[in-house]
């Protein structure tokens, strides 16, 4: 509990520092949109890299807006920060699972769409990881179920199979923990730079790495069109670019947070012929009989007359 409070406090301090950094001089007349950035599964190797990207993207977006609005980016390095401060921004560019947990209108998503993978240091099969500790980026409470239904195809319930699922601040950290043998394996988007050198023991599903979610609807609505236009027109570096709508991966992820089928699949009833109704198999009897043979008028054999050979 004390640790949690301390972490929250640290996040707040860091967040405040970023706010100070990003709150540059801006035209007072133009609407300023505050965009929170929480992307623990994106392929940034370090916090600095993530921050640099956010700064660049905010600037490009503002430029694309051509004065319709200005942007202030606020980067969260950990889930606690995002949870604590997300309510204060106008929009979030955030992890899919986080977005699902938090709710809100998803208006765009990044085109980058990696599969979800499980990376191990010393194993080649998922089966070898039974009872081992695995790690993942801390995104939302349903993440273990999501991995169970995607990477593990619904055939494994991670909670029972692994001894522990450790949530670290992002996938870089999770993969680093594998490399340092602190954990046996980690879930991360396939192709993550930090996964280099690790064994991809399973993959499946698609990770919604970056979703744009509306937080302050009243603040966005006046410039919604301009914002979307600028958003889709702005290159997003390692995220590819943004397109309108929540995207298929996000929609699928929404349904992939339940218990895996290995625990829920129903039994089958037999629909075969065995229990089908059958007509009464009863031979009705008759009174009449076939009468004796009556041959009157039956055609008799015609005689033939063969002539002897010609003389």
């Amino acid at each position: 509990m004390i640790q949690k409070v301390r972490r929250l406090l640290a996040a707040w301090t860091l967040g405040a520092a970023f706010i100070a950094t990003l709150a540059g001089p801006s035209a007072a007349r133009a609407e300023e949109l505050t965009v929170g950035v929480f992307l623990p599964q994106a392929s940034f190797a370090t916090n600095a890299e993530r921050s640099a990207w956010a700064e660049r993207f905010a600037a490009d977006l503002a430029a694309a807006a051509k004065g319709a609005f200005t942007i202030r980016a606020q980067v969260f390095a950990r889930r606690e920060d995002a949870v604590a401060f997300a309510g204060r921004v106008d929009l979030l560019v955030t992890d899919g699972l986080f977005a699902l947990e938090r709710g809100g209108e998803a208006i765009a998503h990044a085109t980058v769409g990696p599969q979800v993978g499980l990376y191990a240091a010393d194993a080649k099969r998922v089966g070898e990881l039974a009872g081992k500790v695995v790690a993942c980026a801390e995104c939302g409470p349903s993440e273990a179920l999501f991995y169970g239904n995607t990477v593990l195809g619904g055939e494994l319930a991670p909670a029972g199979f692994f001894s522990e699922i450790k949530s670290l601040k992002d996938s870089s950290a999770a993969l680093a923990a594998v490399k340092s043998r602190q954990v046996a394996a980690a879930f991360a988007p396939v192709g993550h730079p930090a996964a280099a050198g690790l064994e991809l023991v399973a993959q499946g599903g698609e990770y919604p790495v970056a979703i744009v979610v509306v937080v302050q609807k009243a603040r966005l609505d006046p410039v919604r069109a301009a914002f979307l236009q600028a958003l889709v027109g702005t290159p997003a570096g390692p995220l590819g670019s943004f397109v309108e709508g929540a995207g298929d991966a996000y929609a699928r992820a929404r349904g992939a947070r339940g218990q895996p089928r290995v625990l829920t699949a129903p039994a089958f009833v037999t629909g075969g012929a065995e229990m089908k109704p059958v007509a009464p198999p009863i031979r009705l009897t008759t009174r009449g009989k076939v009468g004796p043979a009556q041959l009157g008028g039956t055609p008799l054999a015609r005689p033939t007359l063969t002539e002897p050979g010609e003389p």
Binding site: V278, P281, L284, T286, V290, P299
Partner: peptide
């Protein structure tokens, strides 16, 4: 080949029996 009342009866009776047999078999 040679129509007769007796054969018509025999035929009708046989078809009745056959039909009842098939009905009983479903």
């Amino acid at each position: 080949l040679a129509p007769s009342a007796a054969l018509e009866q025999a035929r009708a009776q046989s078809y009745l029996e056959l039909g009842l047999e098939r009905l009983g078999r479903g």
